[in-house]
């Protein structure tokens, strides 16, 4: 086909490669039936309560407590994981020692391990007669069956996110800025504090946001260690299930919508963060 041939018949070949319609159709059908329609059900269902009904479903003390617990502990877990995540990533990227590869692979354990397995393991470990729980009970600290159990489970589940977002950024930093700081007279600690850490900040925030999103929605690894006492140690996902069992579909959907909205906001914030950092660099 000559170039003029193409121009004369623009409708003939809109796409160079074959298979566009087939793959797009399959993708759209799959996504629509699997994702969009069920999500639509989630958003529409609370509507039958009306705005007032929705609001009162959300603002019962029990629901509010569960949302406070899920989101509050998720935030705390994200901050703690970010702190340790930076340290762990630094050690993995900058130091050399035997067994480092193994340590690096283990970081992904919370990612690969089924949440129920993590749940019963953590619950047994931090129970008053568990390996760690028994050590802490001597000092009056209870973890299992209290809100702190929720926190520990969330720290476990979110760690990979904070490490893996910071790790590649650290690896790409390059040593030159640190060398420049040294030639200008900075001590190693000054270099780390004034040059290295500020450059990692966007990645740390991103990891924190992802850790928060994951922890807030987590269910399996938390319910065994949590205690699940309404308004005390009951996480929002558990409350959704409880409401479903009571056939309060609208109430369950209402909480689901709140959680979905929070995920959405988090996604937007993350994307905004990415484009803001892209402009700054």
């Amino acid at each position: 086909m000559s170039a003029t041939g193409l121009k004369l018949f623009p409708l003939r070949s809109r796409h160079v490669l074959p298979g566009f319609r087939l793959s797009l159709a399959f993708t759209l059908v799959y996504l629509t039936s699997l994702v969009l329609i069920p999500l639509l059900a989630l958003v529409i269902r609370p509507a039958e309560l009306g705005l007032d009904g929705f609001w009162s479903a959300i603002s019962t003390p029990r629901v509010l407590a569960s949302l406070r617990l899920s989101f509050g502990m998720a935030l705390a877990a994200a901050v703690i994981d970010s702190f340790f995540g930076v340290i762990i990533a630094w050690v993995l990227v900058r130091y050399r020692f035997p067994g480092k590869g193994l340590l690096d692979a283990v970081i992904d354990l919370p990612f690969a391990l089924p949440t129920a397995v993590a749940g019963i393991a953590l619950s047994t470990l931090y129970a008053p007669n568990g390996w760690i729980g028994s050590l802490l009970i001597a000092h009056g600290i209870r973890i299992a069956y209290t809100p702190y159990g929720v926190l520990v489970a969330m720290i476990f589940i979110s760690l990979p996110f904070t490490v893996r977002t910071v790790q590649p950024v650290m690896a790409e930093l390059g040593l030159e800025v640190e060398e420049a700081a040294a030639t200008l007279g900075a001590t190693r600690l000054q270099t780390l504090a004034r040059v290295v850490l500020p450059m990692l900040w966007p990645a740390v925030l991103t990891g924190m946001a992802m850790a928060f999103a994951r922890a807030a929605g987590e269910y399996g690894s938390i319910i065994f260690i949590a205690g699940n006492i309404p308004a005390v140690s009951e996480i929002a996902p558990l409350l959704i299930i409880t409401k479903l069992e009571q056939y309060d579909y609208a109430g369950a959907a209402a909480i689901g919508v709140v959680m979905l909205a929070a995920s959405f906001v988090m996604l937007l914030a993350l994307n905004g963060l990415q484009s803001w950092t892209a402009k700054r660099r």
Binding site: A41, L42, Y219, P237, I240, A253, G256, S263, M266, L267
Partner: peptide, 16 residues
């Protein structure tokens, strides 16, 4: 980015 429980919930809302 969706909680697994919400993932199950949406199917209950459709098929329950």
């Amino acid at each position: 980015s969706v909680s697994p429980v919400v993932a199950g919930l949406i199917y209950v809302l459709v098929f329950g």
